[in-house]
């Protein structure tokens, strides 16, 4: 199992084959888990590129993320025991209070994990207090909020204010996403950044953390 094949399995969304392929690469071929991770991430990059080019759609993105998740499950113990293991950037994600839409947020979570971030997904309809508590507990440096409904976007400001009150606002970067949002609106609510979709969200979060 060479690295190109692993990349290809992600690009071709081979959910059923990926676990065995990663096991084979680890056990039979004794490949470095970090090199395997790089090969898988290259696959995700290509998926993101195809999404941007409208060759792939949300369904493909979801499946690629699922495939990556399965691969990571196999890879995780090897990565954790490696001497190369480094501190991960912690990200808290949530859909804001009053909003039960979580498709974009879930996808972002999986993609972030596949990129090596430590993700704390608080789910949907989450109030500001819960988000603040999780940031305190984990020491996360990024908070990602999703709001699909125009009627809930102002919750972003509530979270921004709650982080400020808790003395955490200057310790975290707040990035938001969702159909009714724009960069102007995000900034008005106190967010540091806005991303149009999950693929761009990954890039923006990497920029915010200096990766």
């Amino acid at each position: 199992m060479d690295y190109e094949q692993l990349t290809e399995l992600i690009v071709e969304l081979e959910l059923d084959d990926i676990a065995d392929a990663v096991k084979e690469a680890l056990e039979a071929d004794k490949k470095d888990p970090f090199d395997i991770l790089s090969a898988l991430t290259a696959g995700m990059d290509e998926v993101g590129h195809r999404y941007a080019e409208e060759i792939y759609y949300l369904a493909d993105l979801m499946l690629a993320a699922e495939t990556m998740k399965v691969a990571l499950e196999v890879l995780k113990p090897e990565l954790a025991s490696s001497e190369k293991v480094k501190d991960k950037v912690k990200v808290v994600i949530a859909t804001v209070k009053g909003d039960n839409h979580d498709i974009g947020k879930n996808l972002l979570g999986i993609l972030l994990m596949s990129e090596g971030f430590e993700v704390y997904d608080l789910g949907k309809d989450v109030d500001a207090e819960t988000i603040v508590a999780k940031v305190k507990e984990t020491g996360a440096s990024i908070v990602g909020l999703s709001s699909l409904l125009s009627m809930t976007v102002s919750q972003i400001e509530v979270v921004h204010e709650a982080l400020k009150t808790a003395g955490l606002r200057d310790k975290v970067k707040l990035i938001v996403g969702g159909a009714p949002l724009s960069m102007d609106l995000a900034k008005r609510f106190g967010a540091d950044d806005f991303a149009e979709d999950t693929i761009k969200g990954i890039t923006h979060i990497k920029n915010l953390t200096g990766i």
Binding site: L13, L15, Y57, L58, A59, D60, L61, M62, L63, E66, H101, D102, I103, N106, L107
Partner: peptide, 15 residues
Amino acid sequence: VQELRGINAFKDIRK
């Protein structure tokens, strides 16, 4: 569909 099936609807498109 999105209300009833949520995120799984998008996986169903392919799977």
